[in-house]
């Protein structure tokens, strides 16, 4: 073929390079160790992915946990569990009348103390059972007789009661969680305290058997 003189010359034959360095001999055990390390790192990366929080978990409050009488301190308030009781009915004595709350189950009555760090707050509670069920304070007892209606202020502790209506078999292993009510446009990362009631099966059964027939509060 008649090739016109091209733009590119044929590759010049390369001059003999510097004498090739003798290849470092890597012992077999080091190769194996390297492969193992790589495998461990890859497995670790895969494992860490399973720990990524779901969107639901990212919305969860920041929880401080403890047991009976533990002072649980958050950025907004501090709280402690003071007493746990059971009752078959609750009588709320008001100024002019008396309300009677009854249940086919049992009332769990939790006395909480709380103080605020900077500003007055009202704290709502819910009870989380060992199985993960979440109970709101019962509406059979007027909220005005409970801690939910009281203002918790800086400088001193204030105590109050929360009433839960629960099946007797759900009491063991439960905990009470306190937080400021979550509002639509408020802070997304609200703190909460979680106090373990310290009830195992036997203790819960014994306490429920000894439950008061009528628990009286004023409100």
């Amino acid at each position: 073929m008649a090739t016109p003189p091209g733009l590119v010359p044929d590759a010049p034959p390369l001059p003999p390079g510097p004498p090739e360095a003798p290849r470092r001999h890597v012992p077999a055990w080091r190769r194996a160790a390297g492969a193992l390390l790589g495998l461990v790192l890859a497995a670790g990366a895969v494992y860490v992915q399973t720990r990524v929080l779901t969107a639901d978990q990212l919305d969860d409050p920041l929880t401080v946990s403890g047991g009976m009488h533990d002072e649980l301190e958050t950025d907004l308030f501090s709280a402690r569990l003071e007493r746990v009781e059971f009752a078959r009915s609750v009588r709320v004595k008001k100024q002019f009348s008396t309300d009677e709350a009854t249940t086919e189950h049992v009332f769990l009555i939790v006395k909480m103390g709380a103080t605020s760090r900077r500003k007055p707050v009202q704290l709502t509670a819910h009870l989380i059972t060992a199985g993960g069920l979440s109970f709101d304070p019962t509406d059979r007892v007027d909220a005005r007789a409970t801690m939910a209606d009281k203002w918790v202020q800086p400088g001193w502790w204030r105590s109050g009661l929360y009433f839960f209506e629960i099946p007797p078999d759900k009491a063991a292993g439960s905990r009470v969680v306190l937080s400021e009510p979550k509002t639509l446009f408020g802070d997304a990362f609200i703190p909460e305290t979680s106090s373990d009631l310290g009830l195992d099966e036997a203790k819960a059964r014994q306490m429920i058997d000894a439950a008061k027939d009528v628990y009286e509060v004023s409100g």
Partner: peptide, 14 residues
């Protein structure tokens, strides 16, 4: 409805 009163809550598992 319970005990002659009207309430609003349905608790889990109950």
């Amino acid at each position: 409805v319970s005990g002659g009163h009207a309430y609003d809550q349905l608790h889990p598992g109950m």
